[in-house]
Design a protein around this nucleic acid. Structure first.
Ligand SMILES: Nc1ncnc2c1ncn2[C@@H]1O[C@H](COP(=O)(O)OP(=O)(O)OP(=O)(O)O)[C@@H](O)[C@H]1O
Length: 659
DNA sequence: AAACACCCGATTTTT
DNA sequence: TCGGGTGTTT
């Protein structure tokens, strides 16, 4: 029976259950199917589903995989699955007491950045010219944890121009760690860090976990980082039954500390590793794989050269250039419309781009034609300011010591700024929400409504959504004075109440929102039942597939993103990203770019060129190309009246790109 | 001194 | 659309 759905290599991976296994799976070679059936086989054999641990890159991926396996056998629903971070959270909630972690709140990226910003200004580093921005500092400190190396080392490798700040940045890190520990706050990196140290230091907990999980599977292993690899090692040291799957060529999270060399390290870490390569692509046509293989050939150095093969054939991928992103968007919208009229399901169509903001023109064109779409990637609903404001009130009730949340809600009140917040923080007892001592002092009467709210919602018997309703009532006037576009935002808040319905405990709601933010905005939630076109960043499209794929904005500088500090390794990652993008397509692939004039002189020059990833495809004729007449930027229709003194208004308006 | 209002500029990717 | 920086108001 397996014969008809799995090839030899896949069957070997599915049927080998003991010992360490490394599955090297090229794009579209059926690794998802392997994980699905291996889970099923294990359960069929009588293995307790709870003793199977499936670690994936997103929670969505885990849920999907288990849902598929559950179609063969319902028990698959009970398999332990999730991301490294959600697994860490669950484990720490269960065993954290032993290491002094009682209840805690998880900080999302925004919260962590805010904290770093606060510490930078406390240390008066903000006033120094050239001190890096808070998000850069956070990135550096985060890599310290994820790659398990020193600040100095990171600076030397990736930010040589910031080397002089090594000690200051280290100090920020130390202070941030102290701050978080005192207030029971954990960020994403802390989750991994604490999990790792518990496994390392606490023998009792380690053996309990070893007893619990006998079969471990890790998906997307090429995008794990050092600390995750160590955790895998620790976990697998129990039963020794560990299977990891990955594809070096699809490693796209280096910026977050991922190291695809983990794939190479794995057989060294686990001596008796069986390696199983999957090489037949079942997803795409030959013509699409020619494009993918062209990208493979572009890779610098040796090692990644193995071509993908398939025996299905179809239409040749196309590359089209446009004079503006608006024209590009119009063309795609029309193309989607006609495909749909020809009977293609919108669910089988995706538009992929490098950065979330690049889909804006297309969103307008799709909306104008009434084509339903859903966008993945970019700023999420729960990361918008107004939703974070509301959630901060709930956080304060859950964890009275969450000073970051206190800060946020206090700053919303008229007449309260940084200094007042500092005063309030030092002068009041946070453990009681009454604010007694404060309210008696003159000047703080403005705080009365806030404390009344907090008292009101600090009750066990209220559900999370009831609490949120109260908060939103209090917050609405603030929202209206703060934002002109408040009607839309009020809708979002109603959606928030909907999203909170399933939760029993406030903590679970808050942690889930941090770890797995719902990624649809309110409007899209209401239309979610029907077919829709997917708009997604390439990162968020990882592991997925569609009949028709458009890869847009393929201009040099945009895809790949090239910045003055970009190194060869960065470009190589961009190239892998492009590879991931084109390998999502099953039948039809369109690559597009727009070459409108940009406002900046420098940009304009860059923008006029096509992506360095596309050029070789034209040369080797693996794409059908439709180029603008004059490809030399200096002679293009827009630059003939372009001189140092000319203004943008010289250019016909419809061809001006505003992005 | 602290809070606020306004303008400018730039814009990766995410657990 | 957002955040940061600067100049103005309380
Ligand atoms: N043995 C097989 N025979 C026929 N089709 C298969 C086989 N294995 C997998 N497929 C199909 O091939 C496609 C790609 O499979 P899958 O999504 O598992 O690939 P993948 O390895 O996860 O790809 P990627 O790494 O690019 O995300 C799917 O549509 C799947 O149904």
């Amino acid at each position: 029976m397996l014969n008809s759905i799995l090839n030899q290599a896949q069957q070997k991976a599915v049927l080998t259950h003991d010992g360490p296994i490394l599955v090297i799976a090229g794009a579209g070679t059926g690794k998802t199917r392997v994980l699905e059936h291996r889970t099923f086989e294990l359960i069929k054999k009588g293995i307790d589903p709870k003793s199977i641990l499936l670690l994936t890159f997103t929670r969505r991926a885990a849920a999907e995989m288990l849902a598929r396996a559950a179609r063969h056998d319902r028990r698959a629903q009970d398999v332990s699955g999730g991301t490294f971070h959600s697994f860490a959270l669950a484990t720490l909630q269960r065993y954290g007491k032993a290491v002094g972690l009682e209840t805690f709140t998880v900080l999302d990226r925004g919260d962590s950045e805010e904290l770093i910003g606060k510490i930078i200004s406390d240390l008066r580093l903000g006033s120094k010219k050239y001190f890096p921005k808070k998000h850069t500092v956070l990135n550096i400190l985060s890599k310290t944890i994820n790659k398990d190396i020193s600040v100095e080392q990171i600076l030397e490798d990736e930010y040589p121009h910031l080397y002089e700040w090594a000690q200051a940045i280290e100090l920020v890190g130390i202070n941030a760690a102290k701050y978080k520990r005192q207030r029971n706050l954990l960020d994403f990196d802390d989750l991994l860090y604490y999990l790792h140290s518990i496994l390392e230091e606490n023998e009792m907990i380690r053996s309990k976990i070893h007893e619990k999980y006998h079969y471990i599977m890790v998906d997307e292993y090429q995008d794990t980082n050092k600390i995750q690899a160590k955790i895998v090692h620790q976990l697998a040291n129990g039963s020794g039954n560990i299977l990891v799957v990955g594809d070096e060529m699809q490693s796209i999270y280096r910026f977050r500390g991922a190291e695809f060399t983990n794939m190479i390290e794995f057989p060294r870490l686990f001596i008796k590793t069986q390696q199983i390569p999957l090489e037949t692509n079942y997803r795409s046509t030959k013509e699409i794989l020619n494009v993918a293989n062209n990208v493979l050939d572009q890779v610098e150095g040796e090692g990644f050269k193995k071509h993908l093969t398939s025996d299905r054939s179809g239409q040749k991928p196309e590359y089209h250039q446009f004079k503006s992103s608006r024209k590009e968007a119009e063309w795609i919208a029309e193309k989607i419309l006609s495909s749909s009229r020809n009977g293609e399901s919108l669910d089988e169509i995706a538009v992929l781009f490098r950065a979330a903001y690049q889909s804006a023109p297309l969103e307008i064109e799709l909306a104008a034609r009434g084509i339903p779409f859903k966008k993945f990637g970019g700023i999420r609903f729960v990361e918008t300011a107004h939703v974070k404001d509301v959630l901060a009130h709930l956080k304060v009730v859950v964890n009275h010591f969450d000073e970051l949340a206190w800060r946020r809600i206090l700053l919303l009140i008229d007449g309260i700024g940084e200094k007042s917040v500092e005063n309030i923080m030092t002068r009041s007892d946070l453990s009681e929400l009454k604010g007694q001592t404060l309210l008696e002092q003159s000047g703080y009467f403005k705080l009365r409504p806030l404390f009344e709210l907090l008292m009101k919602i600090n009750k066990e018997e209220l559900t999370s959504s009831e609490k949120l309703s109260e908060i939103i009532n209090y917050y609405k006037p603030i929202l209206r004075s703060k934002y002109d576009d408040y009607p839309q935002r009020e809708q979002d808040l109603d959606a928030l109440i909907e999203l909170s319905q399933p939760y029993e405990k406030d903590e679970d709601l808050l942690n889930d929102f941090a770890l797995d933010p719902p990624d649809q905005s309110a409007m899209e939630i209401t239309t979610a039942d029907n077919e829709y076109v997917t708009l997604s960043t390439v990162h968020s499209a990882k592991g997925l597939e569609w009949g028709t794929v458009f890869v847009i904005q393929a201009q040099e500088g945009k895809f790949p993103i090239v910045r003055p500090e970009s190194k060869q390794v960065d470009i190589e990652e961009e190239r892998r990203l492009f590879y991931v993008a084109v390998t999502r397509a099953k039948k039809r692939l369109f690559i597009t770019s727009s070459h409108g004039s940009m406002r900046g002189f420098y940009d304009s020059w860059y923008m006029s060129k096509m992506s360095r990833f596309v050029e070789p495809m034209i040369e080797s004729k693996v794409v059908e190309s439709n180029l603008l007449q004059e490809s030399n930027p200096w002679k293009s229709p827009f630059s003939k009246n372009y001189s140092f003194g000319s203004s943008v208004s010289d250019i016909p308006e419809e061809d001006v790109d505003e992005f």
